[in-house]
Amino acid sequence: MSKERPYLEVKDLTIRFETDDGIVQAVSGSSFTLEKGQTLGIVGESGSGKSVTSLGVLGLHRTRSNAKVTGEIWLDDEELITATDEKVRLLRGGKMAMIFQDPLSAMHPYFTVGSQIVEAYRVHHPGVNKKVARERAIDMLARVGIPQPERRFHDYAHQFSGGMRQRAMIAMALVNDPQLLIADEPTTALDVTVQAQILDLIRDLQEEFGSAVIMITHDLGVVAELADEVLVMYGGKIIEKGPALDVFQQPQHPYTWGLLGSMPRLDRDVRDRLTPVKGTPPSLINLPDGCAFHPRCPYAGRNGNRSFTDVPLLRDAGLGGPHLVACHLPPEERTKIFQQEVLPNL
């Protein structure tokens, strides 16, 4: 196999759902790549299309007849959108796996945690007998830091605490050594101390297995902890993309400024007021014309009326790096606004 393509390449991914209320433009024209050993952080608020993007990569929309998916998804030189269901089913849980936000609803309440991990393993290793699979499951439970794995193997999901349940789900996702791990808000339901444990665990496991990780979250702190590259999504589109350090130190999109301005931070002095984005996120059925962010953007009128009519393309932010932004403001003006008006309030 030639290794010209990145390990994961998503090209122009568009996902639409036809509903009674109209067409939901969940994801429009997302493109990104990810190499093994790297972590991609996808940030956005509810309804920004971040979770749907990951479900699209896993092919989980396939069972839904109202979903229309176009574009290309290349995983290890295989195209997934045109692949057969059988093919994707074999990849899912094998080469690519997912950690969900809520482990209680992601696990079956009637089967023991151990038996679910064994099942996941045997589906992808048909020749393996039960005893070997059981040992593998116990080994995985121990690996993610669950005390007394032999005993916990026989417990049901409800008998685990929140943090332990999340660990068990990570064990289930990792049992087949996936090369691509997608974590959708894996720590949102957890306390900070447990969150720190889980993030630590994901980091260690990634180092050990060298897998590619997509971390989806609304928490910029979590992204800053793990991600090498960051995508910011708004209204189903990627509006900013770049190396984590660049995106956090020189954010380019007014929405990213708003997200950073919304967060009180422990590493800075207390601000008198937070500086959030005004208004609410748009409906994906009826996106505003032009830049989807323009109704909430304080700078929308500054550069003619283009924001109201033209959709800004994701292009070079003008910083001389791989940093991309979808905004009509000219680079010099953006930098000026950020330095003079935004940064002092962060």
């Binding site: 332990m164 900070v192 902890e225 350090l245 967060m263 931070r265």
Partner: peptide
């Protein structure tokens, strides 16, 4: 101290330092 150190800081430049200073509590 443990609770405060566990809060993720939105600054990738401080990532290593934050991880070093973190007091990881075990268990529940």
């Amino acid at each position: 101290v443990a609770l405060m150190s566990a809060v993720p800081v939105p600054d990738p430049a401080r990532r290593d330092r934050a991880q070093r200073e973190r007091v990881l509590l075990t268990g529940d």
